[in-house]
Simulated assay, not measured.
Amino acid sequence: MADRAGTVLALIPARGGSKGVPGKNIKEVAGKPLIAWTIEAARQARCIDRVVVSSEDAAILQVARAWGAETPYERPAELARDETPSIDVVLHALQQLPGVAWMVLLQPTSPLRAAEDIDAAFALCQAKGAPACVSVTEAGTLPWWMFHLSADARLRAFLPQQDRPQRRQDAPPLYALNGAVYIARADWLRRTRSFLTDETLAYVMPPERSVDIDTPLDLAVAACLLRERLPRGGA
């Protein structure tokens, strides 16, 4: 069993700037601000002790508090740029919040992840004695059938022809990060500065819970799927 001495912290990073979908973190989706879906999942997860939102944006922090998250500090503006690595935001949170044993990073752009996914990924770390686990989903498009385009619009295979399976049925399954759940032991994370090493476990999620919102189309798809979860007559 992995050591759980100390706090299991759910960190929800939500900066104010967004080019693909402006204001997306507090944009209403299926009757709630987008970030609220992640706050609720984190609060419902049995393994989580604290739910903290990291943001430089006053409106986001206000919405986060309204939906039950803690906002014990304001993220510095230099950690809220387009090019800011997520790990810098995570390590900043660990500096601000002593006593954290496990970090659970939950991006608000994955609103379909459930509390059960968080608990199952954490339980996998515990059962395997692993320092980290991230969520993945089976890749829908495989690299054997991907192509570059030449300057004159001709197809150029991404991978060598000889490596390509003859039939799709013969291709081995591949998995992609879905952005929903990242878990790591805090001391290990400080040392590695990454959730992804050869020690990291994978928690597989179905595609219908793996929508990662980056475009207006992603937002529309997520809204449709979230509305299906609502009780009849809900928002």
Rank of each mutant, 00 (worst) to 15 (best):
C47L: 04
G23W: 06
V181F: 08
Q95T: 09
V21S: 07
D198M: 07
E56C: 04
K19D: 05
D214L: 13
W67L: 01
Y182D: 04
I35V: 08
A80D: 05
V181Y: 06
P172G: 01
I60K: 03
R227M: 08
Q162Y: 08
C133W: 00
L97M: 12
L201M: 04
A180K: 05
F195Y: 10
S150K: 08
L177N: 12
P207E: 10
M205D: 00
T137I: 07
K19Q: 10
S210D: 10
R232E: 14
L174W: 07
P98Q: 09
V204R: 12
T71I: 06
I26P: 07
S18W: 09
D82T: 07
D152M: 07
R209I: 06
P131A: 12
Y182C: 09
R65L: 03
L142I: 05
D218Y: 00
A64I: 06
A151F: 01
W102P: 01
I60V: 15
T38V: 13
Q44S: 10
S54G: 13
Y182S: 13
R50F: 02
V104G: 04
E70P: 02
P131M: 12
F122L: 14
S194F: 06
D3S: 15
R164S: 04
G6W: 04
D198L: 13
Q107D: 13
P13T: 10
R46H: 05
M146G: 03
D117M: 12
D88I: 04
A2D: 05
R232K: 07
P111L: 01
V104I: 13
S110D: 03
R190I: 08
T137K: 10
R113L: 11
